[in-house]
């Protein structure tokens, strides 16, 4: 694969300080040895629950958090903070300066990066960007609070695009929006990808939007990637116990399907990333864990082309955890 972004054994550990004098005592291993590639023009979906490290991973890719180990390559060269990698945040009202007009907020990165010279050229580019994200030119002189959440997210996207990036990290970019608006933003991101050849790292805890936009999906649990596969393959044939439990937990908006589904209810919450357990990190909540899962960390195995998983029981899961989202039954009904 011709990777645009390559993560090699990336680690981000945050030191834990207990008390003023005692120095550091351990570390929160937010990201703990992640190897991933994202091809040019591809959308990689990254899914996981709160505290699994997905946002930290995203921030490291943009250069907002310094990795403590491993490397990030862009176009085969080590990356530092780079205009070519931009980020869209979850809460557009928190990421926009309330005292700056939308026009000024979008023009600023154009000017600071020296992408256009002269006032007229910067303004023309700003208008172009507004148009690109589907905002009227009249937005130029208005302030963020005058816009709805969906429109503010469009401003956030315009601001990211102003830097003319190759890669955009979307960190829960649609999670705070109403469902009807989520779909608008996802459609916009897809349209922009087609027009500008963008590469996305789409981080979300909600699989709905993620499933729609991604080409490949990576599942993260406690600082590690536990499964990566092409989208269709991951949803049709998940090969990690955690992925299966996650898919089973997500309700489908159809009462007839819901009634037929077999639930896999996990016990407990995600453990603290300060002292991850031995073996497979999911074993404390896994309904099908065996002794080997508690002692040995699972190998990263390729199940089919492009489908990797780290689960000792990958080959038995179809029987052990019967699939909740059987595509065949719901399609037959329709």
């Amino acid at each position: 694969m011709n990777a645009l972004i390559e993560l090699r054994d990336l680690a981000v550990h945050f030191p834990v300080h207990r008390g003023l004098m005692s120095g550091t005592s351990g570390a929160i291993k937010a990201v703990d040895g992640v190897t991933l590639e994202i091809a040019r023009g591809e959308t990689l979906g990254l899914v996981g629950e709160s505290g699994c490290g997905k946002s930290t991973l995203g921030r490291a890719v943009v250069g907002l958090t310094q990795p403590t180990g491993g490397t990030i390559l862009i176009d085969n060269k080590p990356m530092t903070r780079d205009r070519r990698v931009q980020m869209i945040f979850q809460d557009p009202s928190a990421s926009l300066n309330p005292r700056m007009t939308v026009g000024a907020a979008i023009a600023e990165p154009v000017r600071l990066n020296g992408l256009r010279h002269g006032r007229a050229a910067v303004v023309a580019r700003m208008h172009e960007l507004l148009d690109l994200v589907g905002l009227p030119q009249s937005a130029t002189h208005r302030y963020p609070h005058e816009f709805s959440g969906g429109q503010r997210q469009r401003v956030g996207i315009a601001r990211a695009l102003a830097c003319e990036p190759d890669v955009i990290v979307c960190d829960e970019a649609v999670s705070a929006l109403d469902v009807s608006i989520q779909a608008q933003i996802v459609a916009l991101l897809e349209d922009l990808q087609g027009r500008l050849g963008l590469t996305y790292l789409f981080i979300a805890h909600d699989l709905g939007a993620l499933k729609h936009i991604s080409h490949r999906v990576a599942v993260m649990y406690l600082g590690k990637i536990v499964e990566v596969a092409p989208k269709a393959e991951l949803f049709a044939n998940p090969r990690h116990a955690y992925t299966r439990a996650l898919l089973s937990a997500i309700p489908v908006p159809d009462p007839m399907v819901e009634r037929q589904r077999k639930r896999i209810i996990l016990s407990g919450d995600i453990p603290s990333p300060a002292n991850p357990t031995s073996g497979c990190r999911f074993h404390t909540r896994c309904p099908v864990a065996i002794d080997r899962c508690r002692s040995d960390e699972p190998d990263w195995q390729e199940m089919s082309p492009g489908h990797h998983t780290a689960c000792w029981r990958a080959n038995e899961l179809v029987e052990l955890m019967p699939d909740a989202l059987s595509l065949s039954t719901s399609d037959a009904r329709r």
Binding site: Q184, V186, A187, L325
Partner: peptide, 19 residues
């Protein structure tokens, strides 16, 4: 406008326009 997990790819999303 809700992408469904139990269905194969459904083509482009059809969001509700406006707010």
């Amino acid at each position: 406008s809700v992408p469904r997990l139990d269905q194969a790819d459904e083509g482009p999303l059809r969001p509700i326009r406006g707010s």
